[in-house]
Amino acid sequence: MTLLLWYLLVPYGAFVVLFGVFAFMDVMHMVKFGTYTLANYFALLFFLVGTVVILWSTAQLVNRVDWTASIGHLPGASVFSSAPEL
């Protein structure tokens, strides 16, 4: 079985989803329980802008990467795939 580079995106994507869930809960807490002050609006805006900046920078840094490139083989998988048919 060939390992492709885009497989690295799977754990990263899972982490981003987890980040999104916790960020959503944080924002909900702030809206529900926080005080309605200008400082808090700026803090929320700062957090959201920062998140976009991190994700955008990551996309810029990896946009030239060939994600279809092979990064190796799983030896165990080749044993199974070459097993003789009964």
């Binding site: 990263y12 982490f15 981003v16 980040f19 957090f47 998140t51 991190i54 994700l55």
Partner: peptide
């Protein structure tokens, strides 16, 4: 990127 996202959160 994942580390920075974690720190930011």
């Amino acid at each position: 990127s994942a580390y920075e996202l974690g720190m930011w959160l």
